[in-house]
């Protein structure tokens, strides 16, 4: 269970996230949708305790991230690809995380096999393709067998086979009773993967509903999404001159 309560984040004069509240429940894939710059990544960074909110709080199983007893066993996250040092092998990267998370080291080879990186686990991770880097990030997220998972744009850089693999993985993690928050701006992918949707625009909550309900509002999920976010998309807004808050994809 993830609880986001009145979360607000400002960068100078720009408000990236404003009074955002929603809950992510276990046993379902919750899609986190919004145009570029809507504050998805910033929200996820605040849930992970990387950025400090200006107001509000984000709780995981009732606690802020920084107060979790065994963070990696409680939460797994893929925030951006390449959250590793290029000079270190995938195995060394995961072994270090396992040590930090109090996770048995045999788990490293298990997750490497699960994401299909066993054969290249000894190679410097800097030589990996974007798809392999995404897989390493997913391996790190699964390392502690956590009950709560966050994925920010996990299908970036994956081939069709990889995209399908992620989709099945998300669904199976949710079916096991885990809490899964999946951000993406690929609506078609979301329609196939998510059960529930949290839609934001310009840092504000636009919808918190089921995929089925939102789809029923228009001819398709995409139509319904555009109807919902039209006003908050900078490059489609009718010359409002208001820029969307910058998406913090640069770390």
């Amino acid at each position: 269970m993830i609880e986001v309560q009145g979360l607000t984040k400002r960068y100078g004069p720009t408000t990236a996230v404003e009074a955002l509240s929603f809950e992510v429940r276990p046993g379902a894939v919750t899609g986190f949708l919004g145009p570029n710059g809507s504050g998805k990544s910033t929200t996820m960074r605040m849930i992970m305790g990387l950025d400090r909110p200006d107001a509000g709080q984000a709780l995981i199983s009732g606690r802020p991230y920084g107060e979790l007893r065994w963070p990696l066993r409680e939460v797994g996250a893929l925030l951006e690809a390449r959250a590793f040092h290029p000079g270190r092998s995938a195995r060394a990267h995961l072994s270090a995380l396992a040590a930090g998370g109090g996770i048995r080291s045999a788990r490293v080879d298990e997750v490497l096999a699960a994401v299909g990186l066993s054969d290249v686990a000894g190679r410097r991770a800097g030589t990996y393709s974007l798809g392999m880097a995404q897989r390493l990030g997913i391996a790190a997220a699964l390392l502690g067998d956590p009950g709560v998972l966050l994925f920010d744009e996990p299908v970036n850089g994956l081939d069709p086979e990889g995209v399908r693999w992620i989709r099945e993985l998300m669904k199976s993690l949710a079916a096991e009773g885990r809490t899964v928050l999946l951000s993406s701006h690929l609506i078609g992918e979301m329609a196939l993967t998510a059960d529930h949707l949290v839609v934001i625009g310009q840092g504000r909550l636009l919808a918190d509903t089921s995929v089925r309900e939102l789809t029923a509002r228009g001819r398709s999920l995409e139509e319904a999404f555009f109807a919902l976010t039209g006003a908050s998309t900078a490059y489609r807004g009718a010359g409002s001159g208001v820029d969307a808050a910058p998406e913090r994809n640069d770390r």
């Binding site: 429940r25 276990p26 046993g27 379902a28 007893r69 065994w70 963070p71 066993r73 409680e74 270090a96 995380l97 040590a99 930090g100 998370g101 109090g102 067998d145 956590p146 009950g147 079916a175 096991e176 009773g177 885990r178 059960d195």
Partner: peptide, 24 residues
């Protein structure tokens, strides 16, 4: 929506400490 029981083991007692960070 009914959530099936989570199959993974719950986190053990205690919490992460300096020693975990140092080993990492």
């Amino acid at each position: 929506m009914t959530a099936p029981t989570v199959p993974h083991a719950p986190a053990p007692a205690g919490r992460h400490r300096f020693a975990h960070a140092a080993r990492m």
